[in-house]
Simulated scan of single mutants.
Amino acid sequence: MKTASFIFLFCLMTFLGQAQSTPTKIYLVKNGAQTLGGIQFYTTLNPSKPIKVKNNGYVLIETDADSLGVIRESPYAENNYQPPASSPKRKPVFIKFERGKSYYFKMGSAAYSTHFDVEEMTERAFWLYIGLNDLTDNVTRYTLSRAVGLVKNQQ
């Protein structure tokens, strides 16, 4: 009986330990409707380094966090197309994630609009979009951890 309990406890601890060490993967691609520049945003885990989603590639963020606070940078004031003298602090938007899962998003803004569209995709739809738009070799990888912050990984 002790042996069976020990084996069960060992398997349970191994499973829980492995599940907690598996990072969440977040895949991001820019919506191709507008090609005037990349998307740049910051997270609350590291508000000083931006995550950039470019027109000609996609981004993979691996994180150990169970939620992510996202802050979009506003390069221009709302009414004119000049950089603001002092950009106001924007409130972050928090997104909850399940550890170890993968999430797929297509994001961007409509032409000449301040509204930002985000569409969650299925895994198949994401990889089809990447393949049909010839973006498969252009991945930018980031590691975002609570301990270290944002680190851009070398390809």
Score class of each variant (00 low, 15 high):
Lys101Val: 05
Pro92Leu: 07
Thr44Met: 12
Tyr104Asn: 04
Gln34Pro: 00
Leu16Arg: 08
Lys89Ile: 13
Gly108Ala: 13
Asn46Glu: 14
Leu36Ser: 15
Asp66Phe: 03
Thr24Gln: 11
Met107Gln: 13
Ser67Asn: 13
Ala110Leu: 10
Ile51Pro: 12
Ala33Val: 09
Pro92Thr: 01
Ile71Tyr: 07
Glu62Asp: 03
Gly57Cys: 08
Pro88Leu: 10
Asn55His: 04
Val93Tyr: 05
Thr35Asp: 15
Asn46Thr: 06
Leu28Ser: 03
Leu28Ala: 02
Ser87Ala: 13
Lys89Phe: 11
Ile71Val: 12
Gly108Phe: 14
Lys89Val: 12
Gly100Val: 01
Ala65Asp: 09
Leu68Gln: 07
Ala110Pro: 05
Ala110Thr: 01
Lys91Ser: 14
Asn46Phe: 06
Leu12Gln: 05
Leu60Ala: 04
Glu62Pro: 00
Ile51Arg: 05
Gly57Asp: 09
Lys96Asn: 15
Gln82Glu: 12
Gly69Ala: 06
Leu60Phe: 05
Phe97Trp: 03
Gln40Cys: 06
Asn79Gly: 11
Leu28Gln: 06
Glu73Lys: 04
Glu98Pro: 00
Tyr104Lys: 01
Gly100Asp: 03
Tyr81Pro: 05
Tyr112Ala: 12
Val93Pro: 00
Ser87Tyr: 02
Thr44Pro: 14
Ala111Pro: 05
Glu78Ala: 08
Asn80Ile: 11
Lys101Pro: 01
Lys106Trp: 06
Arg72Gln: 10
Asp64Asn: 13
Lys96Trp: 09
Gly57Ala: 04
Thr44Cys: 12
Thr24Ile: 08
